[in-house]
Simulated assay, not measured.
Amino acid sequence: MPIRPSDFDRVAAELEQVLTSHPAKVVAIDGRSGSGKTTLGRFLAWYFNSSLVELDLFLAEGGLVHREPEIDRIIGHRLALRRPVFIEGLKVLSVLEALQKPPDILIYVRNPKHPRGFGFGSELDEYEQTFQPQQRANIVLECEHGL
């Protein structure tokens, strides 16, 4: 079994072409819970020697509500340093829209073993109808793994 899925290297190679010449980019990683967003985000942050903003760490009380001012500050700081910033989490496009920071690159991760994820079903259905992250994605990655 490989240390990381080979598709992670493929995604990094696709991003490398863009991030080498224009490093100050917002790269959003979207998908249902349990799809592999965080694992991919951590790999890409390591690969590009950059930061990963894990939206789960910025949840306020009350479900999928984020502490947006903190997220905005981190994104702004990284971009000012001319570094890419990777942001992953449920409803990432909604958060970025609220911050008026559209992603330069959108990656959608799906797990065919668990296409509906693990929770927030109706809330994510509504989000996906509104934002259509899978259709808008520059890169779609299937991470087939069991949880």
Rank of each mutant, 00 (worst) to 15 (best):
S51N: 13
L147E: 15
P103S: 03
M1N: 13
P103F: 00
H77W: 10
E14F: 03
E14W: 02
V11N: 00
F43T: 02
H66R: 15
N49H: 15
V140R: 09
L64K: 01
L59C: 04
Q100R: 13
T20E: 13
F86W: 01
L44F: 00
M1D: 15
I75R: 01
D7A: 12
P102G: 06
Q17W: 06
A60K: 13
G36S: 08
D72V: 05
R83H: 13
P102N: 03
L124N: 07
R78F: 11
L15A: 00
G62T: 06
E128M: 08
I75E: 01
L81Y: 05
E128C: 09
Q100N: 13
V53Q: 02
L93W: 01
R4T: 15
L15P: 01
L124P: 10
E14C: 07
S21W: 12
H66V: 12
S50R: 02
L106T: 09
G89T: 03
R4V: 14
E142G: 10
P115Q: 09
T130R: 14
G89K: 04
L124R: 06
H22E: 15
N49W: 05
Y127K: 03
P23D: 04
L99H: 02
K25S: 10
E144G: 15
L57D: 12
R67S: 06
G63S: 07
E61M: 08
L40Q: 00
L81R: 12
F8K: 05
D7E: 14
I75H: 00
H22G: 04
V53I: 15
P112C: 05
D9E: 13
R116L: 10
P5I: 04
L57G: 04
H66S: 14
I29K: 06
A13T: 04
P84F: 01
L147M: 14
V140H: 06
E142M: 13
T130Q: 13
